[in-house]
């Protein structure tokens, strides 16, 4: 049985709460935000050095995405039999928050919670807002737990400053045939290659399957050209280069490997873009052309 916080702890929590209100950080919900649910673990902060203690090996990936700070608290139900963990990750920038959110969500999880941010997956809610990624999770699924999760989520969501929304770069992905909410951001080793750095993907429906459009922004056209050349080299060594393509960006090539299948890769000013995993080349080309058009100034 989990013990609720005592009076001294409540005083400290009040101080913590007031400090949070006065500062810029989103505040963790105070005790009783969900009626009857009290702290079973007092608010704790983790930094880049100590994050390992809380989320184990996942910490390495969170650090790659720009992790700055985690604020954690745990709430216990009135009977002490259920707990809810509230975790607010400051990822340093919206890309990092969206990146971890999209990495953990996957494509097929239903968006049950569309009127608010993010999604529910069992007794757990996940969302990102501004530079924060928020997870509110419980091992116990019950009506009371779900209701408490909603109350705690609403509190955290409202406490994070800024407007919810999508990253502006994601609007470059054309809407036609796109799998809703399928955009993802990878901070490193994009598409399995270190030299690719960071990049975005979105899934598209084609006859009999899906393929992905990808977009890897670079700081300059020269950097984009360098990544383009390296990817062509890697695919020619690890797969097969099938030839050059005309009319897509400044340069384009077609390749194939054993892992992701068919690749159509293009250089578009400061962006390395492409279609991968497709079976229908015209559909993939058409989607890629639209992506290039959307990226044009």
């Amino acid at each position: 049985m989990l013990k609720p916080a005592n009076k001294c702890q409540r005083f400290l929590l009040l101080a913590f709460f007031l400090a949070g209100v006065c500062g810029c950080r989103p505040v963790l919900p105070p005790s009783q935000t969900a009626l009857g649910w009290d702290y079973s673990e007092l608010p704790t902060a983790y930094d880049p050095e100590t994050l390992y203690h809380y989320i184990n090996g996942k910490a390495r990936v969170y650090l790659d995405y720009g992790f700055v700070r985690l604020d954690h608290a745990q709430f216990a139900s009135p009977d002490g039999k259920a707990v809810i963990d509230v975790d607010v990750y400051d990822m340093g920038a919206p890309e990092g928050a969206f990146g971890i959110y999209s990495l953990e969500r996957g494509e097929e999880l239903p968006l049950h919670y569309k009127r608010r941010l993010g999604y529910m997956n069992g007794p757990a809610r996940f969302f990102w807002k501004g530079r924060h990624y928020v997870t509110i999770t419980s091992p116990i699924s019950s009506a009371e737990t779900i209701q408490a999760i909603h109350s705690l989520s609403a509190y955290v969501e409202n406490s994070i400053r800024g407007e919810p929304g999508i990253l502006s770069i994601l609007t470059a992905f054309p809407e036609e045939n796109k799998v809703p909410e399928s955009e993802q951001y990878f901070a490193t080793d994009f598409l399995g290659h270190e030299f690719m750095g960071a990049g975005f993907t979105a899934s598209y429906i084609e006859l009999g399957g899906r393929f992905k459009l990808f977009l890897s922004p670079k700081d300059s056209p020269a950097q984009a050209r360098q990544a383009f050349d390296k990817l062509r080299q890697a695919l020619s060594e690890g797969g097969k280069l099938l030839g050059e393509e005309q009319g897509i960006g400044q340069a384009a090539f077609l390749a194939q490997d054993d892992y992701l299948g068919n690749w159509l890769v293009s250089l578009n000013d400061k962006h390395l873009v492409g279609s991968v995993g497709f079976q229908d080349l015209p559909a993939a080309s058409s989607a890629l052309l639209r992506l290039c058009r959307n990226l044009s100034p």
Partner: peptide
């Protein structure tokens, strides 16, 4: 599928041939 719907339709017959012996 890719040969039929893809390369042949875009006129890249040579690439279609390359696919048959591809990885």
């Amino acid at each position: 599928q890719i040969s039929r719907r893809g390369f042949l339709r875009t006129g890249a017959a040579g690439l279609g041939a390359a696919l048959v012996s591809g990885p």
